[in-house]
Design a protein around this nucleic acid. Structure first.
Lengths: 127, 127
DNA sequence: ATCAATGGTTAGTATATGCTAACATTCGTT
DNA sequence: AACGAATGTTAGCATATACTAACCATTGAT
């Protein structure tokens, strides 16, 4: 099945860990579950897989991002914030802007994101 | 599981049917399989489900889109073409542009797509 | 008429998620 | 110390896809 959903799911977890860490200083399974609206059990299993892939480190109850996991997470979060701001800037309501940013952040390649950034910044001084 | 992948998958099938129909005049299971790079078996099963949902009509070997299925397909194809053109316009190579368009076409809400269209057309006369 | 190729379906399998239930552990309160 | 709440894990289940293998039906060529 889905390489695509696999990718989305993985990136969502990494991003959620980064967000929770920023928000609370540290990140636990429970925090990620709340952040994503998933059960603790699902998160526990998913994070074990991400740990096996070397993207996450579990230190007792503490969920940490490895260097590569952190790089991923920051990339996704940057895109999330960018699209969220852009969508709000062009008049999309907050809820839709957030939902769409949450999906699009996973869909864009590095190359395309960079070009979009450059293009929009050139055209629209307010961004 | 995934509503997201479910949505992506469904939309990909509808879009593929539309593309094959435009390309060949009619659309068969084999055409959709070739278009998407899936096995005939997978396509056969998937299309039966879409038929049960009322999005597709199977008339002997002929795969047709219902009105609602066609509306979906045309919406996705329109977005695909738009993003493809935009990405190529801002200097992204064809392969990446196509890949990204294929993903983003599923990620954007109606509201956001409309606003992006308006916004970009206002800013960039060449589009 | 026969046999191979083409097209479509069904059955069984594999993978990726997610969920609930049940359980172990730890912590806080009384 | 004891009990209940919170946290995390495991086991078992459900769903959504996709695949291969096997099979049926139609078509076309010899």
């Amino acid at each position: 099945m889905g390489n695509r959903l696999m990718k989305i799911s993985k990136e969502d977890y990494l991003e959620a860990i980064l967000i929770c860490t920023k928000k609370f200083g540290a990140c636990r399974v429970t925090d990620v579950a709340a952040q994503l609206g998933h059960s603790k059990a699902s998160v526990s299993v998913a994070l074990s897989k991400l740990e096996a892939e070397g993207l996450v480190i579990k230190d007792d109850w503490r969920i940490l991002l490895s260097d590569s996991g952190k790089a991923f997470a920051e990339k996704i979060l940057e895109r999330h914030i960018f699209f969220l701001k852009w969508f709000e800037h062009i008049g999309i309501d907050d809820k839709t802007a957030k939902e769409d940013a949450c999906l699009i952040e996973h869909a864009i390649s590095d190359a395309t994101f960079e070009k979009i950034l450059i293009y929009l910044k050139k055209l629209d001084k307010e961004l």
